[in-house]
Nucleic acid binder design. Structure first.
Length: 274
DNA sequence: AGCGTCACCCGGACGC
DNA sequence: TGCGTCCGGGTGACGC
């Protein structure tokens, strides 16, 4: 279930290195690519992909929304982790996992491996990252993203809050978990129409989104991955996956409903629909 | 523009 | 125990 916090964590580890993941990938040159699941590659055949990535050097690692970007000598490699995806740096000679579907080989025998059990992830190799991330909404954690800006964006739409928060062209990086957690923090009902919020409510939503995401980043995400991350956020869910359990704020029992085909968790007491 | 629906996947949970 | 079925995550394509 990688959302913004997880991608941020992985980007940081690939950039700076870590004990668990091995060293940084910065400055390394890709000398080969093993592709075991061609559909992982968006728009390119494995042959074309391999030809274009060979000899390229990784000059930077960034995150934008739920995409992880590797700036190459020419062009950009973008990875979307889907829900079960993970990127790991292997040691020379280290055996590959059955779910390592795409592997990038470095000169020294180590590899950058895209592990994706459920095969929802995608890999893009493009001349300009805008081809992939061009339509994403603003970064909710960026300093320039203000409550005023959010208020204007909400007022310009007439959608239910929950589906709107999940819309990556509205806001980048928020997925199902953090949408529910943000709305609970803001005490707003998931079905509330976006253009009916008061200034005070906009301000609560702004803080709710930012607080939930920041907390996730600090705790290394919400993924249930006991080998690599064991993201601490899962232990702090206030509503997500807590149907029938007490709301930490008021004690009422958390309810679950379907909104746009997505499981949606909320407190019927704190998050009233007027 | 917005909404609903479906397909893509598979590990794990559930029911019988 | 073994089998079948359903679920959930994010996105993109589709039709209305």
């Amino acid at each position: 279930m990688p959302e913004l916090p997880e991608v941020e964590t992985i980007a940081r580890e690939l950039r700076e290195g870590s004990e668990k993941r091995g060293s940084s990938v910065l400055g390394r040159t890709i000398v080969g690519a093993l592709i075991r699941w061609p559909r992982h590659l968006a728009r390119l055949t494995p042959q074309a992909f391999r030809r274009r990535i060979l000899g390229q050097r990784i000059q930077g690692v960034r995150r934008r929304g739920k995409f992880l970007l590797c700036d190459l000598t020419r062009g950009t490699l973008l990875v979307h982790l889907g829900m079960s995806g993970d990127l790991r740096v292997s040691l020379p000679g280290e055996a590959a996992d059955p779910h390592d579907h795409t592997r990038f080989l470095f000169e020294d025998g180590s590899e950058l491996r895209f592990n994706d059990t459920r095969k929802f992830g995608r890999v893009y190799l493009v001349a300009s990252p805008e081809e992939v991330i061009g339509r994403l909404g603003p970064e909710p954690l960026a300093p320039r993203f203000t409550a005023e800006k959010l208020g204007a964006m909400l007022a310009a739409r007439r959608r239910q809050l929950k589906p709107l928060l999940l819309d990556q062209s509205f806001l980048a990086g928020v997925g199902n978990i953090y949408a529910d957690e943000a709305l609970h923090r803001a005490r707003l009902h998931p079905l509330r129409r976006s253009d009916t919020l008061s200034l005070r409510e906009v301000s609560r939503l702004y803080r709710g989104i930012r607080d939930a995401l920041r907390r996730g980043v600090r705790l290394n995400g919400a993924s249930i991955d006991w080998v690599y991350r064991g993201g601490g956020m899962q232990a702090e869910f206030r509503v997500y996956d807590r149907e029938g359990q007490p709301c930490p704020r008021c004690g009422a029992l958390i309810q679950k409903m379907l909104v746009g085909q997505r499981g949606t968790h909320f407190c019927p007491q704190c998050q009233r629909l007027k």
